[in-house]
Amino acid sequence: MATDTQTRQAEPASDRPGRIDAVPVRHPGRWVAIAVIAVLAAMLVHLLVTNKAFEWSFVFEAMNQSQVINGFLKGTLLVTALSMIVGVGGGVLLAVMRLSDNPILAGVAWLFTWFFRSIPRYILLFTMGTLGILFQDGVAFGVPFDWKIIEWLGFSGDWRLFTLDANQIFTGLVAGVIGLGLSEAAYMAEIARAGILSVDKGQAEAAEALGMSSGKVMRRVVLPQAMRVIVPPTGNETIAMLKDTSLLVAVPVIGELFYQLQSIGSTYYKTFPIAVAAALYYLAVTSVLMVGQYFLERHFGRGFGNKAPRAARPAGAGGA
């Protein structure tokens, strides 16, 4: 110990190791990779620009057709949005049911998930389009089994508030949204359940100890934290849903992006440019969705991780 101090003191200051100026590790592989990728990229650009089969002017003309834009807005965007609303809302509800103490609710949620995850979406949409055959007298809202009760009591007439034409429900975009939404709810239920289970038990206990009702505990404390886990896979699901709207043709719905493009393609015998046009649409929307997902993740990630949160929140700003 003593000798150590002595030797150190004996050394002149200039002999003690100073700033490190080392030769960094060389990465020759990176330069090779850059060269290879540069060549491949050049080939791709060359292909895109010079290959006549792309027929870019036709691609953009097809993309600009009013029935295509209409199909894109209604059949693709609107159906994606509505189906995801049904899916996320239904999924969270199913997850809460599945995790509840009530065995009946938990069982119903399990059965729903089992059924709708088992049926391929294309077949589900096809079935939705034909479901009207089950309800040839229409779908009535009122007292269940009213005709039996009326028969027993010896009355006449009916106890129905209003009747919808089943063939109007199970057709077109409505059938599409019902089919895609229910199917999505089954998948979202599992995502939401994983999110809820990811929240530390101490969180619910702390909220309960403050006297919060179980509904408030879920809405104010558990779900906002579960969203951190729920949002990224939900972004995935939304993007998948966007593309699954091209299955609407099974209902059948023709007011949808890909069907409209295809019909232009078959009219002019141009299939490849049509595929390019469709890809460009889907690429564009997916890009926008990914930006949206970034902001959602940032919102629900507040208070977690190292990133500094927005400096000052406006007075009175609540939680979720």
Binding site: G202, E205, A206, Q225, F300, F304, R313, A320
Partner: peptide, 13 residues
């Protein structure tokens, strides 16, 4: 009640 592991709500200030 005050817990050993604090159990503050992490998503709130």
């Amino acid at each position: 009640m005050v817990f050993q592991r604090f159990n503050l709500f992490p998503h709130m200030t």
